[in-house]
Computed example of a mutant assay.
Amino acid sequence: MIQKFIELGEGYSDLYELIELGNRMPERIHQAVAFYSEKNNKPVCSLALIMKPALKDKFQPIYICREGIPNPHEIPNQRFTMFQEMVENSGLSLKEFTIKPSVTFPETALYYQYLTGILRTNKMLPPLS
């Protein structure tokens, strides 16, 4: 199975697209994740939906809005609340991780490999087959 991050943006208006994906396909959501980090001395959050593969497909998308939302534990905000409500309406709970920021990595691809490792270690992604 191929698992790939699909970045929708940094969580400004594109977060509404992520929420809409979850609202329209709640049965396809495998996990909902919040990644917390500090970028440029600001507490930020990345929100992601790990989707179930479509039918017998061997592709599992992970839609993400990267580091554009304030960390809600430090700065409450409506965008995070809307995402959390969508997750709860889908019958799921939000999984939360504190991680290194993407600026720590010389390439975005390496950052996504790091996140993949975290998700696999926590059994949120199936192993490669």
Rank of each mutant, 00 (worst) to 15 (best):
M1L: 11
Q3M: 12
K4G: 11
I6H: 15
E10A: 12
E10W: 13
G11S: 01
D14F: 03
Y16E: 15
E17S: 08
E17F: 06
L18Q: 05
L18E: 05
E20P: 00
E20N: 09
E20S: 08
E20A: 04
L21W: 01
G22C: 04
N23D: 09
M25A: 14
P26Q: 00
E27M: 11
R28D: 10
I29V: 08
I29A: 06
H30G: 02
H30W: 05
Q31P: 00
Q31W: 00
Q31G: 00
V33C: 13
V33S: 07
V33Y: 10
A34I: 04
A34P: 01
Y36D: 04
S37T: 10
S37N: 13
E38S: 12
E38Q: 13
K39G: 00
N40E: 14
N40V: 00
P43N: 05
C45R: 08
L47S: 14
A48W: 07
A48G: 12
A48E: 13
L49Q: 12
I50L: 11
M51W: 03
M51D: 07
A54D: 12
A54I: 11
Q60C: 08
Q60Y: 00
Q60G: 06
P61G: 11
P61F: 04
P61I: 00
P61T: 05
I62W: 12
Y63R: 14
C65V: 09
E67D: 13
E67A: 05
G68R: 08
P70S: 04
P70C: 01
N71Q: 04
I75C: 03
I75Y: 11
N77Y: 01
Q78S: 03
R79V: 02
R79S: 13
F80M: 00
T81G: 00
M82N: 15
Q84S: 14
E85W: 01
G91A: 05
T98Y: 07
I99N: 02
I99H: 05
K100D: 11
S102E: 15
S102I: 02
T104K: 08
P106N: 12
T108I: 13
L110D: 15
L110W: 10
Y111R: 09
Q113H: 14
Q113N: 15
Q113K: 15
Y114P: 05
T116V: 06
G117I: 03
I118N: 10
L119T: 02
R120M: 14
R120G: 05
T121I: 04
P127G: 03
P127N: 03
L128K: 12
S129V: 07
S129I: 09
